[in-house]
């Protein structure tokens, strides 16, 4: 790793200030992706601002409108244990990485990184969640901006994610055999006003909504409603672990399984 200073503020306001004061400062969530990146010397911050001691962005609660609110600094393990009001989300969190990763990695860190194979982006997009930051609120549909890119500004910290709780939902992940990240992951969420389907792992553009599936499922929430629907392999990630065509095929299979599991 390159040399850098590390700060460990306990208040959000201090974290925001530290990030804005230094030109090459970077926020450190759980570090489960950032630290390996630093080891490869693929990033060169002057200062890391650890959010690990900022208690005000941790925790889970229910808003007045029924949305499940998860602090940006909440670990995957805490979401798995505490998001019982949204079982599909808790289940997703409980299958990210491995137990030790789940004890460190945070929802805010995962979303800010927007790995194209990460699980959380699918949940956020399929739930039509709202990403709350240190300066504003961003709708899920406006948050993700391609591979490893979001509409977050420099120094902006994810403080909370507000998930409207659906009537039914499920996440179906098909794991890449080595990394165990999603080769394809499908989050299906059924709300009173329609069904949202988000796909992670598959597209060269990152997480996306499968609108044809949403339309079909909105009128008939059953696996059979997806018969005949398929995605093209063009634009899908193609690598050692699977061609674009294979990923496109898996999207169909795993979407059906997600719908079946959602009941």
């Amino acid at each position: 790793m390159y040399s850098f200073d590390i700060e460990r503020p306990t208040r959000l306001a201090d974290a925001v200030k530290l990030l804005s004061d230094a030109s090459e400062a970077q926020a450190l969530g759980g570090g489960q992706t950032l630290i390996p990146t630093l080891k490869q010397r693929l990033a060169m911050p002057e200062k890391l601002v650890s959010l690990g001691a900022v208690d005000e962005i941790k925790g889970i609660c229910t808003a007045d409108d029924g949305a499940l609110c998860i602090g940006g600094g909440t670990t995957h393990a805490d979401v798995a244990a505490g998001a019982g009001a949204y079982p599909a989300l808790a289940s997703l969190a409980g299958n990210i990485g491995d137990p030790a990763v789940r004890n460190r990695g945070t929802i805010g860190g995962s979303l800010a990184n927007n790995d194209p194979s990460a699980c959380y982006p699918a949940a956020v997009l399929a739930s039509g969640a709202t990403v709350v930051t240190s300066s504003r609120e961003i709708a899920a549909d406006d948050f993700f901006d391609g591979l490893f890119a979001t509409t977050l500004n420099e120094g902006e910290i994810i403080t909370e994610v507000k998930f409207p709780v659906p009537e039914k939902a499920s996440y179906a992940k098909f794991e890449q055999p080595a990394s165990r990240f999603a080769l394809v992951g499908i989050f299906v969420a059924k709300y009173a006003d329609g069904v949202r389907v988000a796909v992670t792992g598959a597209s060269e553009e990152g997480v996306f909504r499968w609108s044809e599936a949403e339309a079909a499922l909105s009128s008939d929430f059953s696996a059979g409603a997806l018969d005949g629907l398929s995605l093209a392999g063009d634009g899908m990630i193609s690598d050692l672990h699977g061609s674009g065509d294979y990923r496109a095929h898996l999207v169909g299979v795993m979407t059906k399984r997600a719908v079946a599991a959602a009941g």
Partner: peptide, 20 residues
Amino acid sequence: NCAYDDNGQLLTGSYMDYAM
């Protein structure tokens, strides 16, 4: 699977891609 591309770059240089 230890795989190289046509330029001799290792495609499976960590446990992220070499499946143990």
